[in-house]
Every structure is written in C-alpha cells, then in structure tokens.
Design a protein around this nucleic acid. Structure first.
Lengths: 159, 159
DNA sequence: GCTGAAAACATGAGTCC
DNA sequence: GGACTCATGTTTTCAGC
C-alpha cells in the first residue's frame, strides 16, 4: 500500500460468488464439481478462478494447520503500547522475526499495535513476553488476552 | 471439546513437515510437485496428506478472500464485557448469527469475549455496534480497536 | 468469455517390502 | 506401516469460436 488511491471494486457476478462460496470452504474441491454445480465447463471455472486470483479477490489458498495438534496449546491476543509512535516500523520488523507472532495489526485506540500469538504453553508465552517482546526497543508495555477457546472463525461474507 | 483428556501429539516426521510447509502455502500445489521436492511418489504424498487430515493436523483447505476487494474496508477487534458470565453461551450464539463477526474467542482478562469484525465502512461498523451488538442480551459494553492495516498474517510455525 | 480435446495430475485399489 | 504401480477421473492448457 504505497498509494492512497481508491480502486473501483472488481465486478463479481453470481457465477463468481457461487465459485467463491465453494472454493473458500475447500480449496481442493474438483473444479469439475464446481462446474457441474454452476452448469458450465471445467475450463470456465479454471479461468474464473485465475481471474479472481489476478484481481486479488482471492490471494491464494492454504491448508489450515490445527495449532493444537502441532503442540501449540496457548493462543493469545496482545495489545502493545509504544514509547513513541515513530518506533512503529522497527517494532513491526522485530515482531516479524518472532514466529510465534502469527498476526500483527496497526491499530487505533488504546494500543498502537495489536498481535496474535501462538505458543506451546502458558510458560512459553511468559517467556516470549519477558525475553522477546519486552526486549524490543520501542515497546513500552503489553497487555495480554489469553483465548481459552476459539468459538468460531470464518471468512468475510460472500453476499 | 467435550472432554478434558490430553491426547498425545501425532508423530510428525520430516517428510510430513516438508509436505506441510508446501501445502500450507498453496493448497492447490500439484502433489506430484511436492513428491518431486521430497523424492517420493505422488501416491505417498496423497497418503500422507490424507493421514494429516485424519489426524486433524490439518483441518482442511481454503481459498483466501481479500476482504477489501469484496468491499469490506474496515477491520476491527472488539472486547466484550458481559453483565454476567452465564450469558456467555447465548451471546456467542447471537454473535454467530452476525456474518460480519468473523472470529470469536472466549478470553480471560479484561474482557469475556473477544471478536474480530469485518465491515464495509466505519459507518457500517458503527451501525453494527449500535444496532446489532448493543441489542444482544447479556452484553454490558464493548471496546473497539480498529485495524488501520494488517502488517502480516501467517500460520503456526512448522519446525 | 466460453468450449473441447490433449497432456499432466489426483485419487483409490491392489501389491510389495 | 509405508511406499510403490497402475487404472480411472480431474486439472490445466490451448486452439478455436
């Protein structure tokens, strides 16, 4: 995001929506199955998906890892206070280097930065806070909200 | 999660890790390509992925929608205070019905519930707060952190 | 922007260590 | 148990409309 232009939204027709609904639930669904549902050829689906990728409407596909099965049992959100706003960029650069930080947002309000972390245990989280986060130059303080359970997670509504 | 047992972690060997690294970045990568990278047959990859699915190590696959391209320009995190803890379940049930609420966590600390919302505009967010959230029985108050920019997002580290 | 056909790939069954 | 081969159906590409 190096410019402030507002680009017009891509035209998404009903066929695109139908395709999106299917492929956002299962990235490896056979395109022929999508094609049959939509009453067009498999190649048409392939072209549409390619177009949606080119437009940036979909940014790719992922297999979703279950953190718990990988031994990451603690999930937490953290609000970060900075000493000065100008530290923002370098703090984000440092946060990027910590693999347990899985999400990072520039926010307004009480905090300057908001992150999501996944650690193996609560002890691991404590270590991350004390040894990694508090050592980053520019971070004044942090506040932690431990997620005891993720109730649900989904994507933006498609019409 | 209806029981409190701690299950042993699945055994993930180096081949599994190599596979995970590839398919979590691109769910539609040809398994034969993965196979070539790993020096095994395509069927072996297919079997391994199937096993990882059965074990729950991966919970499926998704094409990732870019909210901005769908006209959802405002992203916010919200902390929710409840009048009483016992309202928890019914509040979550109500939140589930609001499609703009894309994530919902049961948390400890300042808030009882923590959510992520995607709305088209700030005005849409205001409307959501005033007309939807504040109307839910059991919600005492909410606090909003608007994300001005998502700096990064990734999955749990795979070794 | 869609179709149809050909080459590359995914998937499942059966087989061999 | 885990990987291989083979057969069938799917994805992907591209010429043609």
């Amino acid at each position: 995001m190096n410019d402030l232009h507002i680009e017009p939204l891509p035209n998404i027709d009903e066929l695109d929506e139908k395709i999106l609904k299917l492929i956002t639930k299962n990235a490896r669904i056979p395109f022929l199955e999508v094609a049959r549902e939509c009453g067009v050829s498999g190649a048409a689906i392939h072209q549409r998906v390619q177009r949606l990728l080119n437009l940036g409407v979909v940014s790719g596909s992922e297999f979703i890892v279950n953190p718990q099965k990988m031994g990451y049992f603690t999930c937490a959100y953290m609000g970060i206070h900075l000493e000065k706003a100008k530290f923002h960029k370098q703090v984000v650069a440092e946060l990027t280097k910590i693999p347990e930080v899985v999400e990072c947002h520039y926010v307004t309000g009480t905090y300057a930065i908001f992150i999501k972390v996944q650690t193996k245990t609560n002890k691991h989280l404590k270590k991350l806070i004390d040894e990694d986060l508090q050592e980053i130059e520019g971070i004044a303080s942090t506040e932690t909200f431990i997620s005891l359970e993720m109730e649900f997670k989904r994507q933006v509504p498609i019409k």
